[in-house]
Design a protein around this nucleic acid. Structure first.
Lengths: 235, 235
DNA sequence: GCCGCACTGTGCGATACCGAACAGACCGCC
DNA sequence: GGCGGTCTGTTCGGTATCGCACAGTGCGGC
């Protein structure tokens, strides 16, 4: 498919006033996001940042023993590589493509310069970071207080929000890694949702026939995150 | 005790170059942090931010049913109210004094103006926020992957890092709330650490006789957070 | 001094979750 | 077409944690 990609498909870039956008446009390079591609590994230098237009990138932490757990999801609502703005030149975390698509890449120093202008771009990015912080903290709280089934529901909805269809192409192992459990744990959660008629799952494919039913079933953490994104970020 | 308080006891303020410090100094007002004082409630307008010099403030999230869980700890290493920099004028989270002490309060708009200058203060605060993000994400990961006992150990060490003594004055209920468990859960964790000879607990008092022994027992999450703070923030 | 109340410590049954082991399905390579 | 490896789905027992119920303790108000 020869899709008409545009940087404006990314909400942060879309919200930029013309002047700033014109400055960045020549530097933006489209980059394919292949499923499973590790955008950043632990400790990598951050030479580029990525503004997804389609597809989803997961921010996660990998323990020394190899056990992973997801921290946040980034889609066309945000940008991957925020540490660039913050003064760290590398990332202590990992970012991996969780759902294939495309992104616009930008050299870190170009972006850092734009950020330091202190204009609307900085303003926008800071608001995004605050929304991202909410997502992270809510992940922490949800991990602590809620059942696996609820966390899975939240995660499915957050993923769906960043994708055009109601079908998620994802293996059992991917889900397990994101939730920070074994394959059996993921399976158990999927089964429960399946039995409740909220999803249809088969071999690496999750279909959510009725979003609203799933939203009614999820814990409040999902709404907290969504509300905060809506509040802080323009559409 | 008539202690000689100085804003420089806060590491962020201490790291400011003279020019910026002189600008802020006349605006800083000392504020006592009484144990349990809710610095911010959910949704409060952020009219002031607080730079602790002594004492510890907990950032936490309270669910609709009242169940709380801690997200991060702030001591003299940081500042409470970062949403001010980010563009949100209120906070979706709660902040409460977890260990009594003092802080310097500053009007939000003064701080926002200083931040917008884009100088060393902005630079410093952004690095702090990145460190804080690490603490939050590590809380998320630890909540997901590690045992209550390990989380308690991590939390005790993070608290100790922000206090001068090796004794923590804290009730069972406070610990339970921070960890997001019931009183029995907190008790169980304390007992285990006690049996292992790592702490001495009695009626609202936790003594850590040998930090190193506790550090050897804690999960890697503690070191990740500490390393990141050391890397990003000057001493 | 008396009493109420919030905090502290204990016990136990129910359950969600973990961990390892195993069988079947799909895919690529030869 | 045969073969091996990876991914998928299932089973089962052990265990950490939860949820609830109850007794002891200290501190306040009256």
């Amino acid at each position: 498919m020869l899709s008409p990609h545009s940087p404006r498909q990314n909400q942060l870039l879309a919200a930029l006033p013309a002047a700033a956008y014109e400055r960045l446009l020549p530097e933006l390079q489209i980059a394919p996001l292949a499923l499973g591609w590790p955008v950043y590994e632990d400790g990598d230098p951050l030479d580029k940042v990525y503004f997804p237009t389609t597809g989803v990138i997961s921010l996660l932490h990998v323990m020394k023993d190899g056990a992973p757990a997801e921290i946040a999801l980034v889609g066309n609502d945000g940008v991957v590589g925020i540490a660039v703005f913050m003064g760290g030149s590398n990332t202590p975390r990992k970012a991996v493509v969780q759902n294939a698509g495309h992104a616009y890449a930008l050299k870190s120093d170009v972006l850092r310069d734009e950020f330091r202008l202190g204009g609307p771009f900085q303003h926008l990015v800071l608001r995004y970071i605050q929304a991202l912080i909410t997502q992270m903290t809510q992940t922490a709280v949800c991990n602590r207080l809620h059942s696996l089934e609820q966390q899975l529901s939240r995660w499915l909805l957050l993923s769906l929000d960043r994708l055009p269809s109601n079908t998620l192409q994802m293996t059992q192992k991917l889900i397990a890694d994101m939730l920070g459990v074994g394959p059996e744990g993921a399976m158990e959660g999927l089964e429960k949702l399946q039995r409740a008629g909220l999803i249809e799952y088969a071999r690496g494919r999750v279909v959510v026939p009725d979003r609203q039913k799933l939203e009614a079933h999820v814990c409040e953490c999902y709404a907290v995150v969504k509300t905060e994104f809506d509040r802080l970020l323009p559409h």
